[in-house]
């Protein structure tokens, strides 16, 4: 049974409806045609999406094992890259002083090219490798004989570091070359790591280059309106791309609602998920003080409420 006040309200509403009906308003024929055409277009699109997909023999099936080839190829490429990169960290580069020492004290017999380009100061001086071999023979008759290098003509050219190591082993601790120690491998790797860390720290200290587009997008007043429109459309991918471009998650509409509250109001579970994934605060209330979780519960949107709870909503 209605109260007199409710009857008055109903009468007023009815009076308005009569007036509104008498006005015979309606959208223009062009708008009506455009809306119905759009409806037919979307329906056709939906029908095509729902129809069984014909087999495209040129396209690989989703469950094709072609990914194994790609995975193996990637693995091989990564291994080759690793083999190329690791020696840079493991092999110490010759220090300037050491290079000079090598040229003056130990002509690079193992490197014929270097020998040609840098003539020995004394043409009569014996080649260093046989000297090292002789010392080895003095220190250990049998073992050194086994380890003694072959004649220079028979030797393969060795890397400078190998030559240096051989010579150092042969010279024991007495060689003056010991004064110029090659940099150990470990500190060089650490130095490389430090360089990487320094670059990262520099980027952190000066993030302007990376952050500029986001800051620009966020400062645009259109970004918030575009985000709201995408939320209302339930267009999850557009919402995500706008957020990635820096659209403000905290901007509120005329009713004081954040995009998250708006998505909840329109029951858009996918959009809610996208907003939360991009860092939307699930505890910012609307103007009336209701939190997103309360809003979802009021509307019996259990899936959205569960999402919010998992994101820390109270």
């Amino acid at each position: 049974m209605n109260t007199p006040e409710e009857r008055d309200d109903d009468a007023l509403d009815e009076r308005y409806r009569r007036a509104s009906g008498a006005a015979s308003d309606g959208p223009s024929a062009a708008v009506r045609a455009a809306i119905l055409a759009e409806g037919r277009r979307i329906a056709e699109q939906q029908r095509r999406a729902a129809a069984p997909v014909s087999v495209d023999t040129l396209r690989r099936a989703a469950n094709d094992r072609h990914w194994r080839l790609a995975a193996i190829g990637t693995l091989i490429a990564a291994t080759i890259a690793g083999l190329l990169v690791v020696p840079i960290y493991r092999e110490p580069a010759p220090l300037p002083g050491e290079a000079a020492l090598t040229r003056t004290e130990s002509p690079p017999v193992a490197s014929p090219l270097a020998a040609d380009s840098a003539p020995a100061p004394n043409a009569a001086a014996p080649p260093p490798v046989p000297v090292a071999a002789a010392k080895l023979q003095q220190q250990s008759a049998a073992g050194a004989a086994l380890e003694a290098p072959a004649a220079p003509s028979a030797r393969r050219p060795l890397a400078p570091s190998v030559v240096r190591a051989d010579a150092e082993r042969a010279a024991g601790g007495a060689s003056p070359r010991q004064r110029v120690e090659p940099a150990p491998a470990e500190p060089r790797a650490a130095a490389a790591d430090r360089a990487v860390l320094d670059v990262t720290a520099a980027r952190r200290a000066s993030p302007s280059a990376d952050a500029a587009p986001a800051a620009l997008a966020a400062s645009s007043p259109d970004a918030a309106a575009s985000l709201r429109a995408a939320v209302l459309d339930g267009n999850r991918s557009r919402v995500a791309s706008l957020l990635e471009a820096g659209a403000p998650l905290g901007a509120v509409d005329a009713d004081g609602r954040t995009p998250l509250l708006l998505a909840i109001a329109t029951g858009q579970v996918d959009v809610v998920r996208a907003l939360l994934a991009h860092g939307a605060d699930p505890n910012i209330p609307g103007r009336d003080g209701r939190t997103p979780l309360a809003e979802a519960r009021t509307r019996h949107l259990d899936d959205i409420a569960a999402l919010l709870e998992r994101s820390g909503a109270r």
Binding site: I35, E38, G39, R41, I42, Q46, A49, L232, D233, G234, N235, R236, G267, Q268, V269, D270, R299, H300, L301
Partner: peptide, 16 residues
């Protein structure tokens, strides 16, 4: 409004 309704069809869930 009606374009938005049409374009939301694929994601429409009758939660309300």
């Amino acid at each position: 409004v009606w374009f938005a309704v049409a374009r939301s069809a694929a994601r429409y869930q009758p939660t309300a």
